[in-house]
């Protein structure tokens, strides 16, 4: 798995190759969290707690995979755990005067705390991991073969992005979610339960974030420990703003973030260790730059759901 154990010396070419591989490997959790958040935000609510959901999903996925011996059962359990967090967020925000951003911050801390609490016994044992699909059999270069070992969840996420993009435009459910997000009053006039739609959208969003977390512990990096996620869930939330609430752009943005995240390890593998910490900071700096470029002082963001508290 480690790109540094190479047979062929590719020199600097290994950097773009590792970034390509990284873009696919590292992007998957970003993709799931950002698609989940995209759905939640489209319904008019922001869930900042997905970082906590991601970490709790990673722990649950690993623990269940270890206990049942099936990695896919772990993925499902992580999704269910994530949807419970989503339900909690939605239920609290349904109460009048309760602020969705503050609840998100609280659930971020609560989710991480619970994950560390219950995850303690699972740091040592080895759980079954998710398998990958080998698409690089045609190549003689081991790095290329490694780069084309792709996890099925990546394809599921990509298909989900397309399906969500299509559904938002073409289905009744998509229309209801968009209407609820743009104007609660209009949705009420249509006889739609605003709180109900947001409850479902936040719950499904939590499910996806949980699945994204299970990818971290069950595939890449592929183990459970307390330093597993460092802000991926939060970056994914920022990424949705950059993607202008468009699932297809979420997919592109997730790839971009994956590549940025792979830059540090890729340079390290060819012996560039100077400024290594700054390459590790690259995804955060990139997120911040993207937010600076894509935000605007004077007008509401294009494509933003009208009910969303961060753009009001």
């Amino acid at each position: 798995m480690d790109p540094s154990q190479v047979a062929t010396d590719l020199g600097w070419w290994s950097v773009p190759l590792a970034m390509f591989a990284g873009a696919i490997r590292v992007s998957t959790p970003f993709l799931f969290v950002s698609l989940g958040e995209c759905l939640t935000e489209k319904s008019g609510r922001i869930n900042l707690g997905l970082e906590g959901t991601l970490v709790f999903g990673a722990m649950t996925g690993y623990a269940v995979s270890y206990m049942t011996g099936s990695a896919w059962t772990g993925v499902l359990a992580a999704g269910i755990a994530g949807s419970l967090f989503g339900m909690l967020h939605a239920a609290l925000c349904s109460l009048p005067k309760v602020n969705d951003i503050a609840v998100g911050i609280a659930l971020m801390l609560f989710g991480v705390g619970l994950a560390f609490f219950f995850g303690k016994p699972f740091i040592q044992p080895t759980a079954p991991r998710l398998p990958s699909i080998s698409l690089g059999e045609w190549s003689d270069i081991s790095q290329v073969r490694v780069a084309l070992e792709i996890n099925p969840l990546f394809f599921i996420g990509a298909a989900l992005a397309v399906a969500m993009w299509w559904a938002f435009r073409n289905t009744r459910a998509g229309l209801i979610v968009r209407t609820t997000g743009d104007s609660a009053a209009a949705a009420r006039a249509l006889g739609v339960s605003v709180l109900g739609v947001r409850f479902v959208a936040t719950t499904i969003g939590g499910f996806m974030a949980g699945v994204g977390g299970s990818f971290l512990s069950l595939y890449y990096p592929g183990s459970w420990n307390e330093g597993l996620s460092s802000g991926q869930g939060l970056m994914a939330v920022a990424l949705v703003i950059f993607a202008r609430w468009n699932p297809l752009l979420c997919f592109v943005a997730a790839l971009l973030f994956g590549a940025a995240g792979a830059l540090g390890p890729a340079l390290q593998s060819i012996g560039v260790s100077q400024g290594y910490h700054f390459f590790n900071a690259a995804p955060y700096v990139l997120t911040l730059l993207i937010m600076i470029v894509s935000s605007s002082k004077v007008r509401a963001l294009r494509g933003a759901p009208g009910e969303l508290s961060i753009v009001k």
Partner: peptide, 21 residues
């Protein structure tokens, strides 16, 4: 586990925000 106090803090935070209502 050492995360016990983090759980307690997180729980207080969640309940506190719910009490805003």
């Amino acid at each position: 586990p050492d995360a016990t106090m983090v759980v307690l803090q997180g729980l207080i935070f969640v309940v506190l925000l719910a009490s805003e209502t």
